[in-house]
Structures are given as structure tokens and as C-alpha cells.
Design a binder for these strands. Structure first.
Lengths: 145, 145
DNA sequence: CCTTGACCTTCCCACGGTTGGAAGCCCCAC
DNA sequence: GTGGGGCTTCCAACCGTGGGAAGGTCAAGG
């Protein structure tokens, strides 16, 4: 099966399949005589595993670990659970931070008359704001292309 | 004041100040005879504004808009409120997605015995998982360096 | 047989935002 | 005058994804 077909079957774009291979996340695919990558249904299975993992927010490093465990028949479920729990804790922490941001912004917005006057408590806060804790990029999901 | 001093006073690293200047977010700083960038207390104020905005999760594009409004004495508070509300909606959406991820993972983890047996419902789900909605990177805040 | 169009290959570039390093000049205290 | 820290610029990296160029290949239809 060609890369395009594997992409459609797995839900991982051809671009990303090549990237995952190139970065060592997945093994190098076999090649046809013409140099085309060739995929089996097992490979598609693996790609779906990767996609589902990304959908759940695992990082590439975590997925690498999960893939190893997936292939290892003697794995221990505790190992997998550990990764999942770490991911949950991470999610909870990020959610907490974003909740705080949203709450602060809501406070500010509720104090803002939102009319055509130049006074604006939001700008006033941004100007003053002690800030100092979270810092860093917003990132995250970016769900709408 | 030198860039280092301005960085300490504003909480924005010297690296980032140069980057913000280079990318046009903030105006080019004046230079001393030796070519050093020179900052006034007003500049520090502006840098703090930028930092506080980033702490609240605004993107550079949004901060650019907010800075313009900040400088514009005839601005209308409605414009600022609009940006803040959009940001809040965005946060709520991301939080929602992350909540769903966490809930799914918690379901899986609670089904997982977490012992030294090889059976693992988490891997089983990743293998099968229909997936298909959110996709995309985890990103987000990244608060602990 | 040859053309056409869909596919594949590799390679480079872009985005967000931030950090790191190297090479070279400058300034201040000792 | 000298050492160590500041400053300057430039270049590269992180993660994950998409876009596109330039060229090779496959299958169908004329």
C-alpha cells in the first residue's frame, strides 16, 4: 500500500508519516522497486495508534515510549498506566493555569463598560499587572487551522 | 538604561526584547554612542504591558493590537473588551478539549489494573480508538521549564 | 505507443515563541 | 591596563504541521 493510501486508512497525513519515519518515531518503511514507501495493514495499525495517542495529547517522546510498550509482549500494564497518569496530571495542571487566565480576563472584562469611552480597566490592568507567575506561550491544541 | 537593566525591571528577557523589536511588536529602541539600546521608564512600562499580556495568554498579534489601543488615547474600551472576550472564548474552547482528553485518559486508567501483567486496556484503546476529532499538538503554557 | 493526471520522491521554508551559542566589541572597577 | 561581565549581531534549535518546488512513476485512455 502506498503512503497516500496508508494516510487515508490511518488518518495520519503523508507528510506526517514521512516526518515520523525521519525522526525515528516509527521504523523506516520498505520501498517498492520505484522507491515508493510500502505499508502493510500492521503498519496502518501502528499509524492509527500514533494518531490516537496524539489526539489524546501525548508528546512524541511519550508516544515513542508507548509504541515500545505496545510492541513488547511482556510489558507491564503499570508502565503504561504511569505514562497515562503523568499525562493526566499534566493536563490538569495546564487546565488549571488556563482557568486562572480565563478567570482573570473575565474579571477584567466584567469591569469594562465596553462602550465607546476611552477608559478601559483591562488596559489599566495590563499596564499595572504584577504578573510574575506563569509566563510562557499560549500554545495548545490550536484546533482551528 | 541598558537592555539588561530594562529586562530585569520589566521581567522580559533581553533576548525577547530584541526579538520583539526585531519582529516589530515594539518600536526600535534608541542607541547610545556605543550602539547599546537605551530604554526609558516608559519603555519599561510598555515591556511590562507586553509581559503581563503574554502571561494572560495573548498571542503576539493580539498584543500588537492591544499595544496600539494602549497608545491610542481616543481608543474605545469596546475594542479592548472584544479582544479579551475572544481570548476568553478561545481559552474555554481549549480547556474543554483538554478536559475531554483528561476524561478519556482517566476512564482508561481506571480500567487498567496497573500491575505487572501485560494486559493493558489503555494500549488496547490506543490500538483501536476511533479518534477523529481534535487532533493537533498538545502545546500550552509549558509552565515548568 | 504516448499523453495525461494522480501519485510518489526529496528538499527547503514557514509558523509560534523562546532559548542557546559563537564571535566580537564595549564599559567599568580594580 | 586588564579581567570579567555587559552589549552587539547572526545562526540554529525545539515541536508538529502544512506548503510548495522539482523531478520520477504509475495507470488509464486515446
Amino acid at each position: 500500500m502506498n503512503i497516500g493510501e496508508a494516510a487515508r486508512a490511518s488518518g495520519v497525513s503523508a507528510k506526517m508519516i514521512r516526518y515520523y519515519e525521519q525522526s525515528g518515531l516509527i521504523p523506516k518503511a520498505g520501498r517498492s522497486a520505484a522507491g515508493y514507501r510500502d505499508y502493510s495493514t500492521t503498519d496502518v495499525h501502528m499509524l492509527r495508534f500514533v494518531r490516537r495517542s496524539r489526539d489524546l495529547g501525548f508528546s512524541m517522546a511519550e508516544i515513542e515510549e508507548l509504541l515500545q510498550l505496545w510492541r513488547d509482549r511482556s510489558r507491564q500494564s503499570a508502565d503504561v498506566k504511569r505514562i497515562a497518569l503523568a499525562r493526566i496530571a499534566d493536563l490538569r495542571r495546564r487546565i488549571q493555569e488556563m482557568e486562572e487566565m480565563a478567570a482573570t480576563l473575565e474579571d477584567l472584562a466584567s469591569c469594562c463598560s465596553g462602550d465607546n469611552r476611552p477608559d478601559c480597566p483591562i488596559l489599566a490592568d495590563l499596564e499595572q499587572g504584577e504578573a510574575g507567575k506563569p509566563r510562557r506561550s499560549r500554545g495548545a491544541i490550536d484546533s482551528a487551522p
